[in-house]
Amino acid sequence: MPRTSARGGPQTRARILSVAAGLFLERGYDQVTIAEIARESGVSSVTVFNHFPRKEDLFLDRVDDAHEFLRSAVRAPGVDVLDSLQALTSQLADDHHPLSGLNKRSLSFFRTVAGSPALIARARELAADLQQTLTEELAQTFKGDPALLAAFFMAGYTTVLLETARQRLAESPGATVEADHRTRLDHLFTALRQGVAS
């Protein structure tokens, strides 16, 4: 029997995430219920919802990191915002961070998202939230149109990620995927500099 646990705390959250990820990847996102995740985690369904208001957030759990990365990039003192955003996306690629799509677990992640309309819809909502966060941060310092730059950056980075996902799902060689990813990032920032930020 799974052991019971207190309601809150980072250890409870981490255990719920770990259990959910294992079940989702094993059986598919839509075939797993919150009740099953709670039971296997040794907590109640209420506790799961206390940590993750929506089921989709159990799988798309990096969004808080993404918001913080964007805030930190825009707030970097004495650095051009496009330089800072480019450094951020390059660092994500260097680290093979999950948000780059280059992580070794990204293939199973992409397969799971591609197989679930609910996850696809939620991912679009989260991208819109990230765009709003970026717009609000840019409005503090950017001399141009913050909403336009945020929209172009998010659309561009999403396009880079979708192509990386397509190549990963097609099982292209990892080195080729990474090189193409970096080339597309360079093209994105060239376009941003020559367009909206000029």
Rank of each mutant, 00 (worst) to 15 (best):
D57S: 13
D57Q: 14
L60G: 10
L60V: 01
D61G: 05
V63Q: 13
D64H: 14
D65V: 05
E68C: 03
F69M: 14
L70C: 07
R71G: 01
S72N: 14
A73P: 00
V74W: 04
A76Q: 13
G78H: 04
V79A: 04
V81P: 00
D83K: 11
S84K: 03
L85E: 02
L85N: 02
Q86A: 09
Q86M: 07
T89P: 01
S90P: 00
Q91I: 01
Q91K: 13
Q91F: 08
L92N: 12
A93M: 02
A93D: 10
D95I: 05
H96W: 00
H97E: 03
H97K: 01
P98R: 01
L99V: 01
S100G: 10
L102N: 08
L102T: 09
N103E: 10
K104D: 15
R105V: 11
R105P: 13
L107M: 04
S108A: 15
F109Y: 15
F110M: 06
F110E: 04
R111S: 02
V113Q: 07
V113F: 04
A114T: 09
A114M: 06
S116M: 09
S116C: 11
P117W: 13
L119V: 06
L126V: 14
A128C: 08
D129H: 07
D129Y: 05
D129I: 06
D129P: 01
Q131R: 15
T135K: 11
E136W: 02
A139E: 04
Q140R: 15
T141H: 08
T141S: 14
F142D: 03
F142A: 07
K143C: 08
K143H: 13
K143L: 11
G144P: 00
G144T: 06
D145K: 12
D145I: 01
D145T: 06
P146N: 06
P146A: 07
P146S: 09
L149N: 07
A150F: 04
F153Y: 11
A155Y: 10
V160W: 12
L162M: 13
T164A: 05
R166E: 09
R166H: 09
L169C: 02
